[in-house]
Amino acid sequence: MRTLIVVPARYASTRYPGKPLVELTGPDGEKRTLIRRSWEAATQVDGADRVVVATDDDRIADHVRGFGGEVIMTSEACENGTARCADALNALGEQADIIVNLQGDAPLTPPWFVEALIDAMKADPGLAVTTPVLRCDAAALSGFLEDRREGRVGGTTAVFAADRTALYFSKEVIPYTGKTLTDSDDIPVFHHVGVYAYRPDALARYITFPTGLLEKWEGLEQLRFMENGIPVTCVEVEARGREFWELNNPVDVARIEAILTKQGL
């Protein structure tokens, strides 16, 4: 099966304009942009046949070409990363059995998170869309709750059925626990990792659907699949000692830099 990884990136982020070009300092003191670190994360994935950055912004495109990445220019009308992946696939004009969306704000994504999605899709041809979920430890849950207390829109949580079909995704912390939990508890909160693997037909159908009400209010693109009857399958992944966080807000820069330094990435 041919697998294409698309790293969508846009300059005009509502919460953080210019985010892809924000510099992050690693353990060696070297500054690399968010989009470069995300592209590097994508190139570490085993089983990927091609990695491209999809953007509508010349500043991002020129920067990516400057460090040796491949760029595909997409429409300014793409309202989210999934739509940008669909546009990129059409623009590339190539066949792919699995299209992976590794979002340009997730440089801490371990390769095995993505490989788990690819493996799941290869093992079950019936899966239309897959996405990773990571069980929160006490520290991660505390980070989620702190963001909500401070009025920040941070990471996303997911709940799913016994067969791993997603029931809902939210920027609120779900399910409600009602008490402080420790690592000795069986914490029921799962961090949704912003990576997706799609079948081409699911991706093609996605862009024919209007924006759904849940998608609009939550600001979560994957809900459009669910609102139109296309199941999203959650694939549980393990951290293996790695910390994961996306760059959602300016305050996340220091958090991600600390993780890069701590883990020597």
Rank of each mutant, 00 (worst) to 15 (best):
G219N: 07
F160H: 02
C78E: 06
W112Y: 11
E150S: 14
S13V: 13
A48N: 01
N249P: 02
G264D: 02
E218V: 10
E70L: 12
F190K: 03
A91Q: 08
M1C: 01
G143A: 09
G66A: 15
L89D: 09
C136E: 00
D124R: 12
I230P: 02
G68Q: 00
L24N: 04
A106N: 14
A9M: 13
A197C: 08
A77Y: 12
L89Q: 09
E172L: 11
P110D: 01
D56P: 00
R10T: 13
G264F: 02
A197N: 07
V22F: 10
V71R: 07
R10P: 03
E238F: 07
A86C: 08
R152N: 07
S13Q: 08
L247M: 13
F190W: 15
D105Y: 06
A88T: 04
A166L: 15
R255M: 07
F190N: 06
S142H: 10
I60T: 05
Y196W: 10
N228F: 15
Q222H: 13
L214C: 07
S38T: 14
A158I: 05
I5P: 02
L21H: 11
I259E: 08
E243Q: 12
V173H: 08
G69N: 00
A54S: 08
N248A: 12
G229P: 03
L34S: 06
I99A: 00
G154Y: 04
T261L: 11
E215D: 00
V159I: 15
N248H: 13
H192Q: 15
